[in-house]
Every structure is written in structure tokens, then in C-alpha cells.
Write a protein that binds this DNA or RNA. Structure first.
Length: 433
RNA sequence: GCCCCGGUAGUGUAGUGGCCUAUCAUGCGAGCCUGUCGAGCUCGCGACUCGGAUUCAAAUUCCGGCCGGGGCGCCA
């Protein structure tokens, strides 16, 4: 046994008793005859106080350890108002579990900041910082509530292949790889599989999905490997039903995040839970509003980055940070999007403060129309035979969305670089660690 | 894919042709110090991304490579 208590779990009942703590040596302040050692564990830090005259050998050994070495300490817990936790530990025995090499490639509590690149190269140390770990604690919390909410709504979690034969649904470049004697691709999304599952009778499925995208973008908001809550539901009469699930999901996640008080405090953020329902604004109106503000957007075009930001500002003036953009022009949406009339589609985006965080639609469930739309989008139905087959033997009306988690976390926590929101980011140049 | 920018001790920086034997902080090492909590003080250690060119002289200018950052497009 190495530990009886975490730093934050020590209570008045433990005072004057022998307890065991374990963790990383964050800092050693050796004053001469007395030394203060800060020990960090999963939950926080605590102070070890060592007196030279009480045990010169123990004093010497403990104070000469390198920072970030891992130790287990057995000692007496003493109440002390002068110490931040209200207690300190007077070590009696200890065990060194791992000695850290010095100097560190990245200081955990140094007064100098490190470049993000240096931080990522040494992510295992970077994540020793409370602030950085808080992001992933919140990430865990929002995933947990996503599962809870979706399960409660009758969705089941599925896992679809990430190695696929079909090259593209359009819209992005994909990674190519060798699959024995064949060529294969990394899935850009579970889109085709989750739709195929609508033909099975599972009715409502979701996946914590990996998106692999080979675009050579180099921005703060793009990753080449990202995660999403991807969802598909059958027997819907229109896309509004899908939007309803999405807004409730986002709301539940935002709310759960707001309950992570400790992490929010560490991050120095405020999280205000948005009100439901989110505003719906049709694409045509978006174009009008943007044109009123001197945007050069033409009807039919997708919103450019500056248009998205401008719309975010406009919506904020109307007191809303979340909004759906609905009834997109058919030509700006992927082939599987259900048309509405000749020009429009049942596709929508969900934006938060000017950033697109989710995208979805009612889908086409009629195979002839699907083939037609593929051709219009310069895709060959021949390349999608196994997908199309799922539509030939009974496919109910359905729809769904993809909801980017890193984008969500960026907006939730006001983080400027998306790479902060994933443990080991994959971007244009980074393949390690 | 297009465009812009950067690379100096372990870390973060100063430096814009000679005053650079390269600044400061942090770190690391040695020493002093009984209540620190960004501890303090003394001494020390440690660096110009690579290759070529210009020049009497290059961290500094030019060209190329390598590595990285950012914007746009595309998207989550």
C-alpha cells in the first residue's frame, strides 16, 4: 500500500494520526533546519514539513530528491493553520518509487511559460498541471452525460469500422492506407454506416466517433483526428426531431460541465447554461442579415469564416449564443441530405458564438433519389454499392447529426486552440506523441 | 492547396552588421538560512536550426533545406 489518503480527502478526524500519501514532488523549499515539500496527487497538493534535528538522515534524503520524483510517505498528520490545507504531514518513513531526471523538459510550476509545441512534446508533464487536467475531467463529464441522456432517449451505442473501402462522402480528403492487397481509407465519419443501421430496426443509434480528415489545414480550430457524438434516428417526420435531440444533448452537456465547480474554478471560467429551445434561423434570413452588414455572401454559398463570426456577433446582439441555421441550399450540403423542393434541403448546422459545432439533416431514404444526388455531386453510385444496398430492402425515413466534441469544448471553456481539447492532437505536422 | 510569420542555454526571452567573450528570468549544481507557500541571499553551469552566399567582419543580410506557428479554403 502506498496511499491511505488523497491530499483533498484528509479531514479533522485524521489529525494526529499516521497516514500515507503518495504522489509527485512538486517543490522543495529547504530553509536550512526545516524544509517544506509540496507533494501533488490526483486531487491536489499537500505539504510535508521536515525538521532536520528530528531525523537528519530522512531530512537529507527527502530534500535532495529531484522535483517530480514519485514518492510514498508515511507520517503524522498535524493540524496547522499556517498551511493552506489546514494540515501538514510530518514524514516518518518514505519510499522513493521513481526518480525524475533533471532538469525537466518542462516545468510543472515554473514561473516561465512554455510554448505549446514544447508542452505537447512533453504532454505527460503538461498534463500534470491542474489547469490542463481540468479540461479532460470536464471532457469526461460531458461524455458521461451524453451517454446518460442518449441512453435515456432510447439510443444505443454502436461502433462502426474506421477502415473503409469507400474513399469519400465528399467534402474532405481522406487518408489512404494499404489493406493487404487492397487500398483502404480511414473513415472521415461514420455517416454511411450509421445510416445503414437505420435499415436494421435498431432505430436510434449513436457513436462516440473518430473523424479522420486528410485536409492540410493549419488552424487553431482543425484537427486531422477528432472526436464527435455521431447519431442517427429512424422514423422521423422532419429534421426538427433531430434538432430537438441535439439541443437537449448540448444543453445537458453544458449543464453537466457547469457542475464541475472545481475544474471551472481552476480554469478561471464561468459557464452559463443556455436556455432551450435554441433559436432557429433559416439560411435565407442569415444571408439577408449578413448582406445588411456588408458581407459579400451570395445566396447558395456556404458561410465563410468571417461570415460565421459576423453571424455569431449578430446573434449575440439578439441575446443568443446558440442557434441553428436551417433550410440550407441543397447544393451546399452532402449528397445524402434530403431535398426540400428544388433549391433547399433539410440540412442544418448548430453554431455556438460563430463557430459551427454540429451539422446534420434529415437524410434521403429513397434509393433512386440517393443515386441521383450522388451523380449531381460527382460521385459514382458504383463506389457505394454496399451502402446503397441498405436502402433497397426497406429503409425508413431517418436523420442525424455529427457533433464535434473538441469544438464544443473550445466554446464551452473559451479555449483558443483546439489542440488543448484533445490529449494527443494530430495536426498537419504532429504525429507524436 | 494558397498566403504570412518564426527558429538564441533544459524552459521562456533580449538582440536589427563590429560595443556579443550573447541579455534577463526560470531551471540545474554548490553553499547559507527553523515556518516557507512565486521563499530569500551568494557563487557557478548552460544557447545562436542546418548548408551555402555577401562582407575585412554575420545571431543579425541574402538563397536553399529542415522544423514549427498562424490565416484562408474545406470542415466538426
Amino acid at each position: 500500500m502506498y496511499r491511505s489518503h488523497y491530499s483533498k480527502d484528509v479531514t479533522k478526524k485524521d489529525y494526529d494520526k499516521s497516514i500515507m500519501v503518495a504522489g509527485w514532488i512538486e517543490d522543495i523549499r529547504n530553509i536550512g533546519s526545516i524544509a517544506f515539500i509540496i507533494l501533488r496527487d490526483k486531487k491536489g497538493t499537500l505539504q510535508l514539513t521536515v525538521l532536520k534535528k528530528e531525523n537528519p538522515e530522512l531530512f537529507e534524503k527527502l530534500t535532495s530528491l529531484s522535483r517530480e520524483s514519485v514518492v510514498s510517505i508515511k507520517g503524522i498528520c498535524k493540524e496547522n493553520e499556517k498551511v493552506r490545507n489546514g494540515y501538514e504531514i510530518l514524514p516518518k518513513t518514505f519510499e522513493v518509487l521513481s526518480v525524475a531526471k533533471a532538469p525537466l523538459p518542462l516545468g510543472v510550476v515554473d514561473k516561465v511559460e512554455a510554448d505549446f509545441d514544447t508542452r505537447l512534446d512533453n504532454r505527460f508533464i503538461d498534463l500534470r498541471k491542474q489547469r490542463n487536467r481540468a479540461i479532460f475531467t470536464i471532457r469526461n463529464a460531458v461524455f458521461a452525460v451524453a451517454h446518460e441522456y442518449l441512453q435515456s432517449q432510447g439510443f444505443i451505442e454502436v461502433h462502426t469500422p474506421k477502415i473503409t473501402a469507400s474513399s469519400s462522402e465528399g467534402g474532405t480528403d481522406v487518408f489512404r492506407l494499404k489493406y493487404f492487397e487492397k487500398e483502404a481509407f480511414l473513415a472521415q465519419s461514420p455517416q454511411l454506416y450509421k445510416q445503414s443501421l437505420m435499415a436494421t430496426g435498431l432505430d436510434r443509434v449513436y457513436e462516440i466517433a473518430w473523424y479522420f480528415r486528410a485536409e492540410e489545414h493549419n488552424t487553431r480550430r482543425h484537427l486531422n483526428e477528432s472526436t464527435a457524438v455521431d447519431l442517427e434516428m429512424a422514423f422521423i417526420s422532419d429534421e426538427e426531431e433531430v434538432m430537438n435531440v441535439l439541443e437537449n444533448l448540448v444543453h445537458a452537456m453544458w449543464k453537466r460541465a457547469s457542475e464541475c465547480k472545481n475544474e471551472i474554478r481552476v480554469l478561471g471560467k464561468k459557464i452559463i447554461v443556455p436556455k432551450l429551445p435554441f433559436t432557429r434561423i433559416v439560411y435565407d434570413k442569415v444571408v439577408n442579415k449578413l448582406q445588411e452588414r456588408n458581407s459579400s455572401i451570395q445566396w447558395g454559398q456556404d458561410l465563410r469564416t468571417d461570415d460565421e463570426r459576423l453571424l455569431g456577433d449578430i446573434m449575440k446582439e439578439h441575446g443568443t449564443e446558440f442557434y441553428f441555421i436551417t433550410k440550407y441550399p441543397l447544393e451546399s450540403k452532402p449528397f445524402y441530405t434530403m431535398p426540400e423542393g428544388d433549391k433547399y434541403s433539410r440540412g442544418f448546422d448548430l453554431a455556438c458564438k460563430g463557430v459551427e459545432i454540429a451539422s446534420g439533416s434529415q437524410r434521403i431514404h429513397e434509393v433512386k433519389l440517393l443515386e441521383e444526388r450522388m451523380k449531381v455531386c460527382n460521385l459514382s453510385p458504383k463506389d457505394f454499392e454496399s451502402y446503397l444496398n441498405a436502402f433497397r430492402y426497406g429503409m425508413p425515413p431517418h436523420g442525424g447529426f455529427g457533433f464535434g466534441i473538441e469544438r464544443f469544448l473550445m466554446e464551452l471553456l473559451d479555449i483558443k486552440n483546439i489542440r488543448e481539447c484533445i490529449l494527443f492532437p494530430r495536426d498537419r505536422t504532429r504525429l507524436t506523441p
